[in-house]
C-alpha cells in the first residue's frame, strides 16, 4: 500500500484524480438516493404553494438572517414535540428553496409558529421584541413598518421558483403583484383574486393594521403566519418516531 502511494505522490495528475474520486463517494452515496427513494418525502395532497406576499415575506426572513437564531425543524424528540408541536416532516419543506431548517436556537423554533400568535402580536414583537417579551434579546425591526414592499417584480420571483420545480401557473405569475397587494387588503377585488388562485384557506388580512400601504412588515407577518401551514399532514399522520 505504501509502495503504491510512493508512486502516486510522484504523479501530480494522478494525485488530483485520486483526491476527486475519493472525496466524491460519500456525497454521492448520501445525496443521490434522496432524490430517488420515494419514502424520503411523504405525500401531502393538500399542500399549497406560497402566495406572492408570503414569498416576499420569506425573502425578508432570509435577508434579515432570522434562520441564524430560529430553526424551522422540530426534531423527533419528546420534549420538542411537547414544546413546539408535531415533529417536522420532509414534505413540509418540499417547496422551500432553500430550506430554512436552521442550526441554532438562540430563539425558539418557528416550524409551528403559523397561527400561534395574532398579527398584532407579531407586529408589536417585530417592532420591539422587548415590549412583548421583556427578556428577549432579538433585534428590534422598528424600520420595517415604514418600508414599502417591492411588489412589481414578484412575477419574476414566482417564475424563477417555477423553474426550480414549484407548480405556479401562468395566471399566478401574471397576477403576482396584485395578489401581493390583495392579500394585505381584505374585502377588495384584489383580495378575492388571491382566494381564487391560492384557495379559500389563504390568510388574507390587514397584517400591520395600516390600510394605506403594503409594507415589508405585512409581508413578513404574512409569511410567519403560514410557516408550518402549507399542509396539515403533520397533524394527521401518526407521530410514531418520537424518542
Amino acid at each position: 500500500m505504501f509502495n503504491l502511494h510512493y508512486r502516486l505522490e510522484r504523479n501530480a495528475i494522478g494525485f488530483v484524480v485520486a483526491i476527486l474520486v475519493v472525496a466524491s463517494i460519500g456525497g454521492f452515496v448520501e445525496i443521490a438516493p434522496l432524490f430517488t427513494i420515494d419514502e424520503t418525502v411523504e405525500k401531502a395532497p393538500d399542500m399549497r404553494v406560497y402566495t406572492p406576499l408570503e414569498v416576499a415575506g420569506r425573502n425578508i426572513y432570509i435577508r434579515e438572517g432570522c434562520y441564524a437564531c430560529h430553526s424551522q425543524m422540530i426534531r423527533t424528540l419528546r420534549d420538542e414535540v411537547e414544546r413546539y408541536g408535531p415533529y417536522s416532516l420532509a414534505v413540509e419543506s418540499q417547496y422551500d428553496h432553500p430550506m430554512l431548517w436552521g442550526s441554532k436556537r438562540t430563539g425558539p423554533d418557528l416550524a409551528r409558529v403559523g397561527g400561534k400568535y395574532s398579527n398584532d402580536w407579531h407586529v408589536a414583537h417585530l417592532n420591539n421584541p422587548r415590549d412583548v417579551v421583556p427578556e428577549s434579546n432579538m433585534p428590534a425591526y422598528r424600520w420595517m413598518s415604514e418600508k414599502l414592499l417591492r411588489t412589481k417584480d414578484l412575477g419574476g420571483h414566482l417564475a424563477a421558483l417555477r423553474d426550480v420545480g414549484l407548480p405556479y401557473t401562468d395566471e399566478m405569475i401574471a397576477n403576482a403583484s396584485n395578489d401581493a397587494i390583495g392579500q394585505a387588503n381584505p374585502d377588495t377585488d384584489l383580495a378575492a383574486g388571491v382566494a381564487t388562485r391560492y384557495g379559500d384557506k389563504t390568510y388574507v388580512a390587514l397584517f400591520d393594521a395600516d390600510l394605506s400601504k403594503v409594507t415589508e412588515m405585512d409581508a413578513l407577518v404574512a409569511y410567519l403566519q403560514v410557516v408550518g401551514r402549507l399542509t396539515e399532514v403533520a397533524h394527521q399522520l401518526p407521530q410514531d418516531e418520537v424518542e
Partner: peptide, 19 residues
Amino acid sequence: VSLGHAKSYSLFSGVQDAM
C-alpha cells in the same frame, strides 16, 4: 430571478437541500 436581480432560488428544496 433575472440577470438584474441579486436574488436567486436554490435548485434543491427541503430535505435534499438540507443534506
